[in-house]
Design a protein around this nucleic acid. Structure first.
Lengths: 331, 331
DNA sequence: TTGAAAGCGCTAACAA
DNA sequence: TTGTTAGCGCTTTCAA
C-alpha cells in the first residue's frame, strides 16, 4: 500500500487536517509544525493522491483538449500553446483526437466530463446542434479555439477568417490578376467557408464570378494541392494566381505548378494560409496569411482559466489580429 | 448538485451496487432490472464520476505521456500513434511537454503519478540516474518510446539507430563519396549519438576520419541545416554528401546547398532521417531513413497496455524495422 | 494554530 | 440476482 496522508499525520503526531494544510500551503500552520510535517513527508516519500483530492475538492486541475488531429502541424502548434499556458496555471491536459468525426467529438466531450475536467478547449469544424447542446449544458466552461460558432454563443478565440481571405485575394488582385483560384478542403470547415467568402467578396469587386472552375475542393493535404493544379490547369481558363486555404496545400500547389514547367511567382502567384514552419521551408518561400496559431491556443487556455476561476471576462469571443507576410511566392 | 449513482438507485428502486453493475456491464443483472436502471439513468442524465471510480477502483484508465515537444512533427506523429492505441484500449492520455528539460521531466513524472495514471509513455533524450531511479521505483509501468536506455532495463520501443546511421552513410559511400558530413543536434540525444556512431563506423571502413570538419552540431531545426551548410562549405575540404539526423535538418541543408548555386544531387547528395511528411514536400524529394514513427508510438502504447494488464510480455525492448527510401536527393 | 469528523461518488467484497 | 457496507485518500467545515 502507498503512503497516505494518514500515515504522515501519525508519524508527525499531528492530524490529517494539518498535513493537508501543509501540503496545500495553507498559512495557518505554525512554522515548527510545518517543518516537522515536511520532514516526515520527505522521510516517508509521501505523494498526494490527486484523485482523492479531486473527489473531495471537486477540482481536478485537469482540462480536456479535443483536437481534430495532433499530427497536423497546425493543431500541434495550437496544442503547444494550450499546454504551455495550462502548465503556467498548474493544469494538466487530457488530449484526444477527434478526426472531426461528430460522434467521436460528442463522445469525447462526455468522457472528459466524466473524468471531471475543470474545463475544455475544443477545436473542430462543423458544429451541429448536438454540439451546441453539449456546450451549453456542460457543467464546466468550454472555450472554442480556431473554431467558429456563428452565433458567438460559446466563448472562442479566432482570427477574422473572412477578412483574411479577402485580404489574401485582394493582394493577388492588386498584383494585376483577374484569373484567380481558391483551393480548399472538401467539406469546408466553418473557418474555410469564411475564407471562401472573403475570396468571393474580393472577386465580386472586380466583377469576376466564382464557380467550379476556380474553386477546387480536395482535402487539406499536400497531395490535394498537387491535384488541384492538375485540375485547375486542365481547363481552358487557367488561373494566374492561387489562394490556398492552408500552407500545406500551397506547398502542393507550388510544386504542381513547377512540375508543369511554370515559374512561381513569374507565371503564377501563390499565397497560403497559416504561416506554419512550412512556409519558410519551400523555394520560393511562401507568402501567407499569418494566423497566430500558438497564440490562439494560448489565449484560449488563458480565457478558460478565467472562466474556471469565475473571473470577470470582458470579451468572450476574442478575435486575434492576423497579417499577411509577403515572401517570394508572390510578386 | 450532480446526479449520483445513489440518485439513480433510489429512483430505480435498486441498490447502488446494481446500478454500478449495470454501468460497468457486469452480466450478473437480470435483463429487466438492467433495462429499468438504464431507463432512469437516461431520465436523470446520470454521468458516472470517473474520479470517484478511480479512487475506489485504483484505476483511472488514464496514461501519462511525456513528450519533448508536441509541435515538432516527429513527436506529434508519435503522439498520434499513442493516442490511437490508447483509445482502442479505452484509455485517455495526459500529455505534457518537457522540452527535454531534466527538471521538468522529473517533475512531470511525479505529477503524472500523483494523478494516478495507470502507466506512462516516456519520450526524451538524455536519461540521467535520476530518471532511471524514477522509472524503476514507479508504482506503474513505464515504456520508453523512441528513447534509448543503454542497459535496456526499462521497456522500450525503438529502431536500431546505429545500424540505420551506418546504412545511410554506406549508401552515400557506395555512391562514390569520400567527403561525407553528418549534421546533427547540439547535445546529441542518445538516438542521435547512435546515428553518429553508425556514421563513424561506415567512415572507418573507408579509412576516413571523423572530426569537427565533417560533423556539424546545431539543433534539430531547418535553420540549423542552413547554418550547417554555411559552415561546412566554408572549409577547404567541402563535403560532397551529407547525412542529416532529421528530415527538417535535411531540408535546410538542401536549401542551403541550392542557395550556394549547387545542385542536389548532382553536386551534393543528401539523405535525411525520419521520413516525416516533409520528405515529399521538397524538390528534390528527400531520400531518408524511414523510421516508423506512428508505429513506435502505437507499439509503445500497446506494450504499456500489456504491462498494465499484467500480461505476459515476451520482449520488453522492441526494435522495429527501419528502411531507407531512395528518392531524388541521392543518385 | 490545531483536530475531529463528515462527506466526495464510487467499487468490491460479502452476505443474502 | 441483488443489497449492505466498508472503505478509497483527501478536503473542509466546525469547534476548540
Amino acid at each position: 500500500m502507498n503512503v497516505t496522508i494518514y500515515d504522515v499525520a501519525r508519524e508527525a503526531n499531528v492530524s490529517m487536517a494539518t498535513v493537508s494544510r501543509v501540503v496545500n500551503g495553507n498559512p495557518n500552520v505554525k512554522p515548527a509544525t510545518r517543518k516537522k510535517v515536511l520532514k516526515t513527508i520527505e522521510e516517508l516519500g509521501y505523494r498526494p493522491n490527486a484523485v482523492a483530492r479531486g473527489l473531495a475538492s471537486k477540482r481536478t486541475t485537469t482540462v480536456g483538449v479535443i483536437i481534430p488531429d495532433i499530427s497536423n502541424m497546425f493543431f500541434s502548434e495550437l496544442a503547444r500553446g494550450i499546454d504551455d499556458i495550462a502548465n503556467m496555471y498548474k493544469y494538466n491536459i487530457i488530449l484526444s483526437n477527434s478526426d472531426q468525426n461528430i460522434d467521436k467529438e460528442i463522445k469525447l466531450i462526455n468522457t472528459m466530463l466524466e473524468k471531471q475536467v475543470d474545463g475544455i478547449v475544443y477545436m473542430g469544424s462543423r458544429l451541429t446542434d448536438e454540439h451546441l447542446k453539449e456546450f451549453k449544458t456542460s457543467p464546466v466552461p468550454i472555450v472554442l479555439a480556431a473554431t467558429i460558432e456563428p452565433t458567438n454563443a460559446i466563448p472562442s478565440v479566432n482570427i477574422d477568417y473572412e477578412e483574411a481571405g479577402y485580404e489574401a485575394t485582394k493582394l493577388l488582385i492588386d498584383n494585376g490578376h483577374t484569373k484567380l483560384a481558391f483551393v480548399t478542403g472538401l467539406d469546408e470547415t466553418t473557418a474555410n467557408k469564411a475564407k471562401h467568402q472573403g475570396f468571393v467578396q474580393a472577386l465580386e469587386e472586380i466583377e469576376q464570378t466564382v464557380d467550379q472552375t476556380n474553386v477546387f475542393r480536395g482535402d487539406l493535404s499536400y497531395q490535394s494541392g498537387l491535384k488541384a493544379v492538375e485540375s485547375l490547369f486542365d481547363q481552358t481558363e487557367k488561373p494566374t494566381a492561387i489562394f490556398a486555404a492552408s500552407d500545406e496545400i500551397a506547398l502542393g500547389v507550388i510544386h504542381g505548378i513547377q512540375d508543369l514547367g511554370l515559374n512561381v511567382p513569374a507565371d503564377v502567384e501563390v499565397i497560403g494560409f497559416d504561416n506554419t514552419r512550412l512556409a519558410m521551408m519551400i523555394r520560393p518561400t511562401l507568402s501567407t496569411v499569418v494566423q497566430p496559431v500558438y497564440d490562439i491556443g494560448a489565449v484560449a487556455m488563458r480565457l478558460l482559466t478565467k472562466y474556471m476561476n469565475k473571473e470577470e471576462v470582458e470579451e468572450s469571443n476574442v478575435i486575434l489580429p492576423h497579417q499577411i507576410i509577403k515572401r517570394s511566392s508572390t510578386k
